[in-house]
Simulated assay, not measured.
Amino acid sequence: MISLEAMRSYLSTSGRDQRHTMVRAEFRGAVAATGHGSCLSSTGLIARSTGAGNFGHHAIVVFPQIMEPGADYRPTRALPNPPIGLHTICSTFRQLGIQSYFCIPSVAVANDSISMTWRAKELGIPWEDAYQDFPGKLAGFQPRGRRYNFLRNHTDVSIVPDAYIPEEFSKEHLRVALSDRYISEMSDVDGIFWGRQYTYPLEIKEKTCNRDPRLGEYFGLDVGPFVKLAHYAAKRGNLHSLFIVREIADPEARELVAWRYITFDRLAQFASWVQQQGGRGMTGGNSAVVKIPKCEFEVLDANALASL
């Protein structure tokens, strides 16, 4: 078992942006309130290979089992089946050449997150895979030559409500386990929405609306997430990404104005072509952003989700 206190203690050393954790969790609550919660996956990670001549040639996506504080995760327990919807999502990734895994934790010593390990089974394949130690051998990924201390930071996690901690802990522990074994370029998968027409990887951000004399009101998207969405678009198939914005008026008060969304197809059509400085990031600083006119976004509500 892992207690909630042990989860918080681990996250306090990881140095990750906990404000983003809250935004993702609030989005999950907003989707559930519309009756579409079963169409939304948990968070995950996507990793790409590195190295000259090999950069980006191999990719995997992983989804952790969300741990419940105090539950039994002994290695000898009966192992769970992956969520049904995850099979379909991972099949879509598989068709694009991205291997997908459902990962489960093993806790041999109570509340000892450092010795906690992971096992995984590949999904999206036409046969039943068995759970194996993860990360095992990943074709195309460069093994890390020596250990690196990923838990050297001091992060304030007191702002994160108890209900949001288990999902973030599960994803973050898996991220460190993978990073400790392999060198890769890694990014969060904020969620996958299984729509009526397509499967939608999500990029979720909290943004204030800014104004530009040429564009009018706009939202900024950092270049890194923009390129990640472009990567999905290049693979295409049945993947049609969404950029989700939790619009706020004041970064300190964080009072919700509206949830808005734009498909990557429309984002690519109407985003400014010139990378510019500007746009307040979720960590409070300014960064290089792509500007997208606010008028091209739509309000994300039950009707919008039903139409996807």
Rank of each mutant, 00 (worst) to 15 (best):
E206P: 01
P126F: 03
T13V: 12
A47L: 12
E298G: 14
F150L: 08
V227Y: 14
K121R: 15
F141V: 01
V62L: 07
A33Q: 07
G281E: 10
I60K: 01
F93V: 04
L79R: 14
P105A: 05
M1T: 06
S49A: 01
M7H: 00
V23G: 00
Y218V: 01
S100G: 14
W273Y: 13
E167H: 04
S91P: 02
G220H: 01
W118E: 00
C295P: 05
T117D: 07
Q276W: 06
T76V: 15
G220W: 03
Q132A: 10
E247G: 11
E68K: 06
G284T: 08
R211A: 14
N111K: 00
Q95Y: 15
G29D: 09
T283V: 08
Q99I: 03
D129E: 03
R211C: 14
S272L: 11
L256N: 01
S9F: 01
L4Y: 11
E296K: 10
E217A: 01
D265W: 12
A302P: 03
R74P: 06
V176S: 13
Y73W: 10
T76G: 11
S106R: 10
F297K: 00
W194G: 12
G220E: 02
H154W: 13
A288C: 14
F150P: 07
A177Q: 12
Y101P: 05
K228H: 12
E172H: 08
P161F: 09
K171F: 11
Q142W: 05
A253M: 08
K137W: 05
G195H: 01
A130V: 06
H173Y: 11
E203M: 01
R74G: 12
T21I: 15
R28P: 00
F270D: 10
A288S: 13
E206C: 13
Q65H: 15
I98Y: 11
T92I: 14
R236P: 00
R236W: 15
P69G: 03
M116I: 03
I2Y: 04
N210E: 14
M7I: 00
Q18V: 15
E26T: 07
Q197G: 02
G37Q: 02
G51L: 08
L308M: 11
I84D: 15
M67C: 13
R196V: 00
Y148F: 13
V289N: 07
E172M: 12
E167D: 12
P161R: 02
Y218T: 00
Q65C: 13
N210R: 12
V107R: 00
R280T: 15
P213M: 00
P213S: 00
V245K: 03
A110S: 09
R152C: 13
D265I: 08
I2K: 04
S9L: 07
P166S: 14
R77K: 13
I2Q: 05
A268P: 01
V23F: 01
G279F: 07
S42R: 13
N286H: 11
